[in-house]
Nucleic acid binder design. Sequence first.
DNA 1: ATATAACCAACTAATCTTGTAGGTATTAAA
DNA 2: TTTAATACCTACAAGATTAGTTGGTTATAT
Lengths: 133, 133
Amino acid sequence: MMFTTKTEYGLRAMVMLAKNKDSQPLSLTQIAKATHISQAYLEQLFAKLKSNNLVKSSKGSTGGYVLYRPAKKINIFEIVEALDGPMAVFYCVSKESNKIACSVKGCLTKKVWEELQKNIIKTLRKFSLADLV
Amino acid sequence: MMFTTKTEYGLRAMVMLAKNKDSQPLSLTQIAKATHISQAYLEQLFAKLKSNNLVKSSKGSTGGYVLYRPAKKINIFEIVEALDGPMAVFYCVSKESNKIACSVKGCLTKKVWEELQKNIIKTLRKFSLADLV
DNA sequence: ATATAACCAACTAATCTTGTAGGTATTAAA
DNA sequence: TTTAATACCTACAAGATTAGTTGGTTATAT
């Protein structure tokens, strides 16, 4: 029951973007250097961040990444979900649960996971990226 | 960010023990048959449950397992932690965090994980095994 | 043109989860 | 006292996921 390093790394990078007050976007080369995370690995993370509309990119020689929205308008849950995939503490409360057999009628255990999951999401939504800067 | 099947299986088995109104303890053979979980795998789970004082065992021909305490006195967090290991949503808030370098002074991200973790534990403690029966 | 950047897909390495195999020790009951 | 059923133990193996690498291409400011 732990988040992956993807989440950790991505979050660190997002904090860097939030702190960046330059007129220029921040390149992965710069981020890799500062965080000691391999640039190729960062690329994969940023693909996810971008497809979830959390960052936008510009190509070319002065290119790089900037936040898609102001840091205050990005909450931590969005970042976590973009990087780690849809939140599901158990199969029975995942969005793909129809695939897996959990047809137990009135299963009381499920209620625990539902409440837990709601709670996690609520907590993560409470914090914005700006809160981490 | 998902609990393992260890937790799922162990919890199912614990519910069975809680439901067992026989004078006899429940054997792993019986649990394995009812849940379709391999008996050898259940053995490993019960080793953890036992060392965490959640069940007690009796050997011999009519042996098996019973709850260590009444179901009402066992909360879900205890079971989850026994099976899945100490709760830590991130390395920086794990009990072994001294091993891993997270010496960032006044790291704001950590506060998020601390609050999240507290919340998870609180939610899981709120439910007892008796609530699932 | 050239250098620097994003972007892309496939592969490899490492780790963790899940499960198996083969045995010993204990004990109620025949 | 034998037998059958049980817990208990350790090491291994298969499978899945995570983490990271490699070798490219496409785009763009200088």
